[in-house]
Write a protein that binds this DNA or RNA. Structure first.
Lengths: 208, 208
DNA sequence: TAGCAGACGCAACGATCAGTGCGATAATGG
DNA sequence: CCATTATCGCACTGATCGTTGCGTCTGCTA
């Protein structure tokens, strides 16, 4: 097994809300609504984003959306949690550095998509702290899996919190609070700055 | 001069929109609307946050809010830019490390306020990328001032971008995407991890 | 002090939203 | 294959939003 998928939920196929009836029509409605949310956010950027508009785009009655998801925040959190999960697999390059570098670059590439950014912003704004957690929960789990595998290799691994601070922190900070999404090159340097801690001060600017 | 204030705008006193008439009534209306936004966000957390509600809380006619600020996103960006600026001064402790440590702790304390968090989340969600920039523009300028002063002392300073990634990144990442706002102790360690780069891997977890 | 112009309040309009019973449909389990 | 029940569509209502035109007020300037 050279690739392990993310250890989050989504076990079988469609993965509805996971409660009662993940059958055919419900899954179809869910997919349509999710796609409508992504499309609308990609177009208007969370302006004039209301439940009736989403329902109309999805070809679904507004009542359905109100009943299944309740509020716009919950719907956005669900869409974000579903969209931002599962599309990044954790590679196994044999070394911790290689795993981190490839994974960080993948995350940076994903974060460079304006649609993903708009979805994350809207989710954070409408769903509060739980929305923010929904955006990065999967990434946190992936990072934990990478570190855990290094542990199973017998290597010494840094703390998960520290790794999240040093890697996820700059990535998401740049994505949300600045206009430069951060290129792949810069993301790779992030891993170097985190792992290689023997360089003198000031040499980090051109340490590549 | 032992303290230098932030080098952003807000030169004289009230600082209206800066366009034409910063006089008495306009400033009063502006202050009332700003306070209303902060109060409402602190209470309901950006749920049911609309312009008529804000106007009613501020004791101002909704038309005024619509005409002066236009959209909810612009209003939130203005409030955030005003609220998140000027309340943190850049101390001068004599050393780069001391300046950074005190400033980072101040930022962490400010970010531990739930009201500030709610305001930032709402701004990011409603105002898009410019809203995010408005939230951290002042902090970026303060960090630049700290580094610039170290340069004027003759010391060698790290890159501003790197410093923002290593300090602002974890701070705002934790504030927005997690529920743990990050204590002062942890914030101080951030500076150490950024400046002291001679520790072996894995020792950072208990490097305090 | 007097005129000017920007800023505000008022009232009204159309449009849309959020929410609620009720019947119909289709997916699940025996 | 059939009963059950979760899920969805439909029609409807009250409430609120966003916007506009016009008159008034007040801060600025000659």
């Amino acid at each position: 097994m050279s690739m392990i998928t993310t250890p989050t939920v989504t076990p079988p196929s469609t993965s509805a809300t996971g409660h009662t009836r993940p059958g055919g029509r419900s899954a179809r409605v869910r997919a349509a609504v999710h796609r409508a949310v992504e499309e609308l956010i990609a177009e208007d950027g969370s302006e004039t984003l209301t439940l009736p508009v989403i329902a109309a785009r999805a070809g679904v009655h507004p009542t359905t959306v109100y009943r299944r998801w309740g509020s716009l925040g919950d719907l956005l959190a669900a869409v974000a949690s579903s969209r931002l999960s599962g599309d990044v697999v954790v590679p196994d390059t044999g070394t911790l550095r290689g795993d981190l570098e490839r994974w960080v670059v993948d995350v940076a590439v994903d974060l460079s998509d304006p649609d993903v950014l708009a979805l994350m912003r809207a989710t954070v704004g409408a769903a509060g702290s739980e929305g923010g957690c929904a955006c990065v929960a999967d990434r946190h789990a992936q990072l934990g899996a990478i570190l855990e595998r290094e542990t199973s290799r017998g290597g010494t691994t840094p703390d998960l919190e520290r790794a999240a601070d040093a890697l996820l922190g700059p990535l998401y900070y740049r994505a949300i609070f600045t206009n430069r999404p951060g290129e792949s090159e810069w993301a790779g340097d992030l891993v170097g700055a985190f792992l290689d801690r023997g360089q003198p001060l000031g040499a980090c600017a051109d340490a590549r």
